[in-house]
Write a protein that binds this DNA or RNA. Structure first.
Lengths: 243, 243
DNA sequence: ACGCGCAAATGGACTAGACCACTTTGGGCC
DNA sequence: GGCCCAAAGTGGTCTAGTCCATTTGCGCGT
């Protein structure tokens, strides 16, 4: 195979030069350090504020910088790893040594649209519990989670959830039901204004979206969950073994 | 103007209103449809082009729209799922029914920096093979992959790779070495100009970065690989089982 | 009928500036 | 000494415009 010579050098946008300049700077400073203000960078680098802000925004999205309105821009802490595993959220966190809390944002009953009907093996219009929760680790918002389950299959679920926050424990105790298999998908998205506020970040910030479609031992779907994590703060980790 | 009292209503930026307008539009159109031009949207929605472009950029980053300079903006095809599994890239693709090719971009020898030395259990400055490849599925660029392996442990690797493109097959045949375990991490990043060009996308576009740190049966590290996938086009899928 | 070249239209990058929301700070007051 | 509040400084949003690169399509010439 011949190694192709790229005829066209990728032309570098001006904002990317600013970004590289900032990356150098970040590399030489400890987390928490103050970085020059946007207006100062504008003068130093001879560009417009828009261009500086584009570079800053990418670095914020990559978790290298943190901006605080009215205060300044700072070098960020390293990202946090989060394991992808079959156990429940609460157990995962405990294993990793984190203190986890869950805040119930909303829990109600809705009619299944086409997508959720297909996922839960229901008819369109069937009754579905929609549970929205905020996951916090050591007090800091980590993810917004939207769970959907068949209301017919899990009667009274919402009431029970208000006493026992672990969904998987409720399923096991009251419905003798446990997910034994799941398909997870991971993708990127931009934060909506609502999710941005819940997660204390900016609208449009890059996020990791983890969807889980889980099944019981008989292969019947139990729940369909989507979780939105801040992409600038978390990385997912999975341990794979051959065979 | 009367300011709403709602204590903490997430204030919606104007660009997000444009985004929702476009999402409605996208929902009613089949993939490939032409969407109004930026200048027309500017007039229709009474905003500046910058604001329209911010909304468009997010939608492009989420894989809902495709922009082609000089031509127009189009509704995008759905994303493609890509499995996370322990087998080699080439095998994965074959199983999924895709035709896969690999283009060797660069292969050479470098001195280990601190990070790669730690990953491969070497001393800083030890010789390391750095192999950069472009992965294509059905002819379209999918990912840029950067593999790093100990040169002392795999002498002549680069030469062999030029005849047999599957790295895992080369490792098995010539070095009797196979990864049986791996840690994979997934995070988001923005495309550099170089990667953007290789992947036929825009600088700054959101990407999924998959890092794999793999080990042989004795627990010794074999390789450290990072792959950059277009976040607007791919989602990762993993199948998890309890126990 | 065909093809070529050029003009129009598209998205891409950047500028300069206005105004707003929020935080910090320091001076004046008690 | 401590408190409060105004001012200054920070990032956040948006505007209106320029110039560029690429694509498309039309009209002209052959």
């Amino acid at each position: 195979m011949v190694v192709a010579v790229s005829e066209r050098a990728p032309r570098e946008p001006k904002y990317y030069l600013v970004k590289r300049h900032l990356l150098d700077l970040i590399g030489s400073l400890p987390p928490g350090s103050l970085v020059p203000t946007e207006r100062i960078l504008t003068l130093e680098l001879g560009t417009s504020r828009t261009t500086v802000r584009r570079a800053l925004s990418e670095l914020v999205g990559e978790g290298r910088l943190v901006r605080r309105q009215g205060s300044g821009t700072y070098v960020a802490e390293p990202k946090i790893s989060w394991p992808l595993r079959m156990t429940s959220f609460t157990e995962q966190a405990a294993e990793a040594g984190y203190t986890v809390t869950t805040k119930l944002l909303d829990a109600g009953r809705q009619r299944a649209d086409e997508e959720v009907a297909a996922r839960l093996n229901l008819k369109v219009g069937a009754s579905v519990f929609v549970i929205e929760r905020l996951r916090l680790v050591n007090g800091a918002a980590m993810a917004v989670e939207l769970s959907q389950l068949s209301a017919a299959r899990f009667p009274g679920l919402v009431t029970k959830l208000k006493r026992e926050p672990s969904l998987y424990r409720v399923l096991a105790e009251f419905y003798d039901s446990a997910p034994v298999e799941a398909d997870e998908t991971i993708e990127t998205a931009a934060a909506s204004p609502r999710k941005a506020e819940l997660l204390d970040t900016d609208t449009g910030a890059p996020m990791l979206v983890l969807s889980r479609h889980s099944f019981d031992a008989s292969g019947a779907p139990i729940e369909w969950v989507r979780s939105w994590y801040r992409g600038d703060r978390y990385t997912f980790v999975a341990r794979l073994t051959a065979r």
